[in-house]
């Protein structure tokens, strides 16, 4: 195990923050060592400083991506914490569609645009896709845009492939849904093509400007801002406010709050969940 020095912790933390917005304080130093050790050894580096130098001078950016993949946390589950999906199913989507149908001329399909801002390996987006499929049997009548983005290439690739091992799949997903929406491939489960086809995945860094991203009716940004410092959190939610439709919805993690972070959002309670709308 290559030991990490105090200076290296500082330099690596700054580098990672600049790339991804992930804020690692000194107490998380053990995390850097645990997560970067394998990569340092694989790259034949004797120290983390050497790894840093190598990543900085690598024009292909492939080492930078590997570092990002190593430090990002991919903790996500199908229907993790069921309440946001129940919220979408029972409150947000019906409300949104009612409001939009009242306004529409009838000739154009109603559009529903949903963005999962830190989709990790895709479980959240596929869970949303399943809700849409179950709630709107005549999916063709709608213009659905379902986007999942993540900063980690590896996570996006895995999300896009849509295959999960039994440990990833067993929790959150009941056996009925598992058999209905997945097919078994060896010991793994792969999302069915019709669900897969509903979603577009791409790599996206939440620290960058949101230009060209388009407008959204529902944004999921759960448990990602927890890795950001206060300044970056403020910027992130301000940018989200900018790309949200005036009557759109924001859903954040159940242990997150926007008080003191973004005054443009108003919390709304529905049963045991909270969602946010623009003032």
């Amino acid at each position: 195990m290559i030991k990490i020095t105090t200076d290296e912790i500082k330099i690596m933390s700054q580098y990672i923050h600049k790339m991804s917005g992930i804020a690692l304080d000194d107490q998380k130093a053990y995390l850097l060592e645990a997560r970067l050790n394998g990569l340092a050894e694989e790259q034949g580096c004797a120290s983390y400083m050497e790894l840093y130098q190598k990543a900085k001078t690598d024009d292909s950016k492939s080492l930078e991506r590997k570092i990002l993949d190593a430090v990002t946390t991919n903790e996500t589950l199908f229907f993790r914490d069921k309440s946001p999906f129940e919220l979408v199913r029972h409150k947000i989507l019906p409300e949104l569609i009612d409001r939009r149908s009242a306004k529409s001329s009838g000739s154009m399909p109603l559009s529903v645009r949903i963005w999962s801002a830190a989709c990790s390996t895709g479980q959240e987006v596929y869970s949303i896709a399943i809700v849409l499929k179950e709630l709107l049997p005549d999916l063709k009548k709608y213009n659905i845009k379902l986007l999942g983005t993540d900063i980690s290439d590896e996570a996006v690739a895995q999300a896009s492939y849509g295959q999960y091992n039994k440990f990833a799949i067993e929790r959150g997903l009941d056996e009925g849904s598992l058999r209905k929406y997945f097919s078994q491939v060896g010991g793994n489960w792969k999302i069915r093509d019709d669900i897969r086809a509903m979603v577009l995945f791409k790599k996206f860094n939440l620290m960058l400007p949101f230009t060209g991203l388009g407008k959204y009716d529902i944004v999921f940004c759960r448990n990602v801002a927890i890795y950001f410092n206060l300044e970056d959190k403020k910027k992130l939610f301000d940018k989200i406010a900018n790309i949200l439709e005036p009557d759109g919805y924001l859903i954040i993690g159940s242990t997150e709050a926007l008080t003191g972070i973004c005054p443009r959002f108003v919390p709304q309670r529905h049963l045991r969940s909270i969602f946010y709308q623009l003032k």
Binding site: D81, S254, T255, A257, R269
Partner: peptide
């Protein structure tokens, strides 16, 4: 073991989440 840990995490997260959300509404 991982299931048990996740279960424990879920319960903690759920409780913390409820408290935070209640506070968020009160502050609002």
């Amino acid at each position: 073991e991982s299931l048990d840990l996740r279960e424990a995490m879920d319960v903690t997260e759920k409780n913390a989440g409820q408290t935070i959300q209640d506070l968020e509404m009160v502050i609002h």
